[in-house]
Amino acid sequence: MLDDRARMEAAKKEKVEQILAEFQLQEEDLKKVMRRMQKEMDRGLRLETHEEASVKMLPTYVRSTPEGSEVGDFLSLDLGGTNFRVMLVKVGEGEEGQWSVKTKHQMYSIPEDAMTGTAEMLFDYISECISDFLDKHQMKHKKLPLGFTFSFPVRHEDIDKGILLNWTKGFKASGAEGNNVVGLLRDAIKRRGDFEMDVVAMVNDTVATMISCYYEDHQCEVGMIVGTGCNACYMEEMQNVELVEGDEGRMCVNTEWGAFGDSGELDEFLLEYDRLVDESSANPGQQLYEKLIGGKYMGELVRLVLLRLVDENLLFHGEASEQLRTRGAFETRFVSQVESDTGDRKQIYNILSTLGLRPSTTDCDIVRRACESVSTRAAHMCSAGLAGVINRMRESRSEDVMRITVGVDGSVYKLHPSFKERFHASVRRLTPSCEITFIESEEGSGRGAALVSAVACKKACMLGQ
């Protein structure tokens, strides 16, 4: 009897593995994704193909990295998701002549009506938060230079001027797309009239992360975010950046690689679950690469896999709870928690219980395998993109072996128990001629924006502006 049951459990697990095998990517698959990513990057950089390229390769006008001589107080704003952060950054000489960066910050959550109302409502709310922060720190009387981390696709015309191309991540505030974001912020500050600010720089969160990590390690020339969304930036040779005049030196390019796949480059790798996630998203047909990796989508992918296993009578005796059938019910943090389970399955059992399920031991094991399959594919897909960037940098610099540091931020990278190990191992397999160091950014977005502002202020002083 026991043997029969054991055989049935083994057969069930084997069927589960057959279904989950769809998520496995072979090294040849990853090399294919990497080569296609490089081709799209090239198209994004070139003037004649930029418009139709899915990977936009947006110039950021960040050319210099901090040298350690900029000092002063800077205000930093960070808008990239449902939370908005205001930070005071003091850049100065530390002990023994070292450079020191001290920060104080406060988080504000953005109400739904500000995210989806008008641009005026959104930026009025942001300036209200700045006003509140300055009151708390008794700094209303000071006109501070301000660095703005704005983590949406922007076409820069200068370091302090950028046109919002399109909202992502659930934002829909009308009247912002096609307009200068810094102008919208300046107008809102003017409307309030109770404080003055000098907006000197606007950067993407990947750029802010790279600059913040450069402060720790001067070989950091790539910034990457794996959180709600997924994106990367890197220092490109100016001669390859056709959208900006000049051939000397390097400029940081914001790849906006989340949109890779929007022209069909990933079609052969998309599964039924991916198509369902895409169809029910706020932007169907867009940001397809990001939807395979980002935390906004990972939990939902797992939920759809679990429903398939229920329908195949391989999980929960073929019956799903009402909660499990509800879109968004299986949160991405559950994926991390399930994979963090120590082996007694308590954590998995508790999560499934909150979803109205009474799982068996085998159910718990199957749910864990589903989570591992989805998150491992995410790590491997992400590795193909980064390997594409790094191999490109090595080739354009004609280096036999390139040493490089990548600064990384984002909740999936930082909080998932195995993502970074799987990701690092896969990147290294795909970049055999590179020695890569990964560092995690601390308060990256805010500190990085302030350091970019410090560079901009120093330049302005040198130019006598």
Rank of each mutant, 00 (worst) to 15 (best):
V455Q: 15
F152W: 00
M107A: 08
T103D: 11
E421P: 10
E95W: 08
R392M: 08
G464Y: 10
L20P: 05
L430G: 04
D409V: 01
S360A: 12
E157I: 11
T82V: 02
T65A: 14
V181I: 03
E221H: 09
H105E: 10
R358D: 08
R447Y: 08
R394Q: 13
L301I: 08
E440L: 15
S281M: 08
V71E: 15
L25P: 08
L165F: 05
K190D: 05
L2Q: 11
E96G: 09
W257C: 08
L386T: 14
K136W: 06
I163D: 01
G94A: 09
E22G: 13
E339M: 07
G258K: 08
S151M: 01
V16W: 11
L146G: 01
A21C: 10
F84K: 00
E14I: 08
G117P: 03
Q219A: 14
V182R: 03
T60N: 02
D113C: 09
D160N: 02
E128P: 02
S281P: 05
R46P: 00
S396I: 12
E216A: 14
L355W: 06
S396T: 11
S64V: 15
T82G: 03
G229N: 02
V91W: 04
P111C: 11
M202V: 04
C434V: 13
F195S: 01
V338R: 04
K102F: 05
L144W: 05
H156D: 01
S174K: 05
V226E: 02
C220I: 14
V89H: 02
E435C: 11
P432R: 10
G356L: 13
M402Y: 11
H317W: 12
Q337V: 15
G92T: 03
K13E: 12
A370D: 06
L122E: 00
K102C: 05
S445C: 00
E312N: 13
K143M: 02
E256A: 01
F423S: 05
C129K: 08
T149K: 01
S445W: 00
N180L: 04
T65W: 15
G356E: 12
P111W: 02
F330L: 15
T103S: 14
F423T: 13
M235Y: 06
T82P: 00
R36Y: 11
L88R: 09
L144C: 06
G264F: 14
G385D: 03
G285L: 14
E67F: 15
L314M: 13
E279Q: 12
G264Q: 13
I404M: 13
V253L: 09
L164F: 01
A282H: 05
S396C: 11
L306M: 11
Q323G: 13
L58G: 01
G183Q: 15
L288I: 13
R36V: 08
L292K: 10
G295K: 02
H137M: 15
L58D: 03
N166V: 05
S445H: 00
L77S: 02
R303D: 04
I110P: 05
L415T: 04
N231E: 03
Y234W: 06
Y214L: 15
G68A: 10
E128G: 06
F150R: 02
